[in-house]
Design a protein around this nucleic acid. Structure first.
Lengths: 248, 248
DNA sequence: ATAAAACTTGTACAAATATGCAAAAAATAT
DNA sequence: ATATTTTTTGCATATTTGTACAAGTTTTAT
């Protein structure tokens, strides 16, 4: 078997499986692993694939490693526009943190006259750019990673509020397990926000559907509206339809 | 499974959920936690994510102020370094808003263990980047221009605090007229901060010396320490020496 | 302030790799 | 056709890499 043929075979394998193992190729092509290594090395030099310890990997996968700037932003913008249609003048609205919520704020109509309440610093900062929004920050001790205020004083203050809507950026949502998250203190705040609002709207890109994490924020029944970038009739959303949740 | 594949998986998880736990990844990828730690460490070195105790978190969520052009920044950095020498472990410190205060925060020793209290959103955001600082945000209605919390609830809350130091970014200071400013609501907050701290330290670039504005924050006698970028013996600072203010 | 979880450091071992060399194969020249 | 050169391949060996485990240290925590 000619070298060129081996190379063609290897490239085909990479295109199909995104990776190849030197050991596999050695048995498939009936040459020594040394030869495979040399082949992969050459293809790497030509920029056709990425040689790694144990085999080689498609270049496209390397792309996704660097492409982490604003993950799924187009999806989040779709969600933001769906969500913004729910807001009316005079409303009092609770907002959590997260990049999806930031997109929602950017998507707000510039002449919307609503009052927004949040405990997230980035959310507050973005809200301040809106020309007419009234912004209330419920403060206390700030959590470093989540960049939000947490603790008993926050919970108490939120308890005094009667809001119309509560928009939650979601980390994990599952039709059975409900909304789950990782940080205990942040979850306590989200619970309080849900309790203080007439309606809770969950915003989640579809990749977060049917995933769960360690700690529960609320049961799925506590969510009135679920917004994803998908069409409401999408297969993935059936379990949530079944739970009588409005899907936008 | 190749190492790069694991890396790609981890990055995908980070992009979806903003954070990952080493323990979760260990079970999902069926490798030891050691290996996960090494992976996260490598990805951290590559600048793809932020390694933290127990796992890793997304970089994109960790956004700070995209520091635009700061007026008179070199002077402000000099001031910041002088001011940071006043801070000791265990102190409770009040901070106003303003770019000089932001520079002060950047100049803090990374292992300083102090508690900072502020009503300014940009100040809070910058403080969150400090590794050990405890940050407390006194929240309420936010003022758009000043990007800070104001109002009776803030004044009341500040009244309950007993702080060691209060650092004020100053707009106008004059040996006769004292510290003056423009926005009534923001001034009320500064007054309350001065009242709650044992010592008040005014930070001002020399261009703001001997200028006055419409509304008074406090008399010059309320300031214990004045910090400018000038040498303390500078001609311009004589009027303040005469008022028994410590000049750094 | 104590226990659990996570981290560091060092060790061990297997898998993968690099390198030099010689045999085999292919290309080229005579 | 045969000899000469060049390329390719496989093998032995020494080296590096990737992973897991263990012991001791640090950090975190509901």
């Amino acid at each position: 078997m000619l070298k060129k043929e081996r190379h063609a075979f290897i490239v085909r394998e990479i295109n199909i499986h995104n990776k190849v193992l030197s050991s596999d190729l050695s048995t498939q092509l009936i040459v020594s692993e040394d030869t495979i290594r040399r082949d992969l090395h050459e293809l790497h030099e030509e920029g056709i694939l990425n040689k790694v310890h144990g085999g080689a990997i498609s270049k496209s996968i390397q792309f996704s490693l660097q492409n982490n700037i604003v993950y799924s932003q187009p999806d989040k913008i779709i969600i933001a526009h769906k969500a913004s249609s729910l807001l009316k003048d005079g409303m009092i609205v609770l907002l959590s943190g997260g990049t999806t919520i930031i997109e929602l704020i950017k998507a707000l109509s510039p002449d919307l006259n609503a009052t927004f309440i949040t405990t997230s610093i980035p959310t507050a900062l973005e809200l301040l750019n809106h020309p007419t929004a009234e912004v209330i920050f419920v403060g206390n001790k700030l959590l470093k990673n989540a960049q939000m205020a947490v603790g008993a004083a926050v919970i108490e203050k939120l308890g005094e509020i009667k809001a119309d809507l509560c928009f939650l950026g979601i980390n994990s949502i599952d039709a059975v397990e409900g909304i789950t998250d990782l940080e205990w203190e942040a979850i306590e705040v989200k619970k309080a926000m849900i309790k203080s609002a007439k309606k809770t709207i969950a915003l989640a890109i579809s990749k977060k559907l049917n995933t769960t994490q360690r700690l529960m924020v609320c049961k799925i029944e506590s969510v009135e509206i679920l917004i994803t970038e998908l069409d409401p009739s999408d297969e993935l959303l059936q379990p949530y339809h079944a739970k009588k949740i409005t899907i936008l």
